[in-house]
Design a binder for these strands. Structure first.
Length: 196
DNA sequence: ACAAGGATCCTCT
DNA sequence: GAGGATCCTTGTT
């Protein structure tokens, strides 16, 4: 079952937690989401914090669409827009576990194997063959890139987000990174702690 | 038109 | 654990 647009039209922290265990599909590649981060409009770490720009525009739009951001001029990072139209927020997909299409993923990731394949947002973007042209693509519709339902994880972790030292201390320290506990497919585990 | 810096990754040690 | 790669977006002139 594909996720419906209403799944994404909710509180961003809730969507970020609920995306754990869900599935991303693109062509023959199927990935289980194992790690996410939430970014909200009031959040000084969010690209939309300073208002609409050409880049942040999509986050103000309808929920359930892709926001692919180019980081360091190299890494294509997949976010999914959340909240009602007019509210700018998104969830970054940080890590995944391969479910299908492993050969293709390995090819796109330089022949590597093991968790190094998919633990990190730039790696997820590479595995799914995404680039900024995918920005605006609806994940709830058919065709191309899709988000599907999946089994709920038994235990999850939370901790501060990665790489946002420039943000206000309150936002920098907020535990808005979420991960599945019992999997090796998670990046920088040391800063994560158990959620109940 | 220009300079600065980044929601990272890889390759070393 | 540390450092360099690499190039687009943004804000300023």
């Amino acid at each position: 079952m594909r996720l419906r647009q209403s799944f994404f039209a909710r509180d961003t922290l809730t969507v970020a937690r609920d995306l754990l265990g869900k599935e991303l599909r693109h062509g023959g590649v199927r990935l289980r989401i194992t790690e996410t981060e939430a970014y909200t409009q009031e959040d000084s770490a969010c690209h939309a914090h300073r208002g609409r720009t050409k880049r942040s525009e999509v986050m103000f739009g309808p929920p359930g669409r892709a926001y692919v951001y180019l980081c360091y001029g190299i890494h294509q990072m997949l976010n999914i827009v959340t909240e009602a139209e007019g509210t700018a927020a998104a969830v970054l997909i940080r890590s995944c576990e391969p479910l299908a299409g492993l050969d293709l993923v390995r090819e796109r990731r330089g022949g590597k194997s093991g968790p190094v394949l998919l633990t990190g947002p730039g790696k997820v973007g590479a595995a799914l063959a995404l680039d900024t042209d995918w920005t605006g693509h609806p994940l709830y519709g058919g065709g191309g890139l899709e988000a599907h339902d999946g089994p709920e994880p038994s235990r999850t972790l939370a901790g501060p987000r990665v790489g946002i030292d420039y943000a206000d201390p309150v936002d920098r320290d907020a535990p808005w990174r979420f991960a599945i506990a019992d999997t090796p497919w998670v990046s920088q585990r040391r800063s994560l702690v158990d959620r109940r």
